[in-house]
Computed example of a mutant assay.
Amino acid sequence: MISLAEILAILALLAAALALAAFVYLWRETRRLRRDLRRLDPVLQTLHRDLRVIAGESFHRGQDRVMLVNALERLADQQQEMRLEMRMRDADQSPYAQAIKLIRSGQSREQVRRLCALTDAELELLFGLHGHGIAGEYASDRLSDTGS
């Protein structure tokens, strides 16, 4: 019969063989993982660099979009100004006729003053006659501004 010492020696030998097999397996897996890491590292670095470029382009596109919206707003304002100027050119050459047309289209006093080069008194008279309630509002605003 086999003695207890022999059984323990066999078990110890099996444990050592199992530990050696595990060590060899882990050592091979470690080598494989290192090799895969060396192969994938440049790919990951390229992806990281590409992501930074894409993020930067996205930021610049957002800025470009804001600049485009601002430019479109400026163009719309310029187009409005040109329409007003064209209306003036189409109107009778008299600055009063032009001012009356602008007043009836709802333009502000400042705009009429700028486009027709009229004095305050002329503007008062024209807005009073053709402003359809605008002159009354303006007069009450002027009275409240002067403290009366």
Rank of each mutant, 00 (worst) to 15 (best):
M1D: 06
I2C: 01
I2L: 02
S3M: 09
S3C: 12
L4R: 11
I7R: 13
L8A: 01
A12I: 05
L14H: 11
A15S: 04
L18H: 06
Y25E: 04
W27C: 00
R28C: 08
R28N: 07
R35C: 01
R35H: 06
D36H: 10
L40Q: 06
D41A: 14
P42Q: 05
V43Q: 11
L44E: 03
Q45C: 00
L47N: 15
H48M: 05
D50S: 06
I54M: 14
A55S: 12
G56L: 14
E57G: 07
S58I: 10
F59Y: 08
F59G: 08
F59A: 15
Q63N: 03
L68N: 03
L72D: 13
E73C: 12
D77I: 09
Q79L: 10
Q80S: 11
E81H: 13
E81G: 08
E81T: 10
M82C: 06
R83Q: 15
E85N: 00
E85D: 01
R87C: 04
M88F: 03
R89V: 03
A91F: 10
S94T: 04
S94M: 05
P95N: 06
Y96G: 05
A99N: 01
I100E: 09
K101A: 15
L102C: 04
R104K: 14
S105V: 00
G106M: 12
G106A: 11
S108F: 07
R109F: 12
Q111K: 11
C116H: 02
A117F: 13
L118Y: 07
L118F: 09
T119P: 04
T119K: 09
A121T: 13
A121F: 13
L123M: 09
L123C: 08
L125Y: 12
L126N: 12
H130F: 15
G131K: 05
G133F: 04
I134V: 11
I134Y: 09
A135D: 04
A135T: 00
L143C: 05
T146Y: 04
S148P: 07
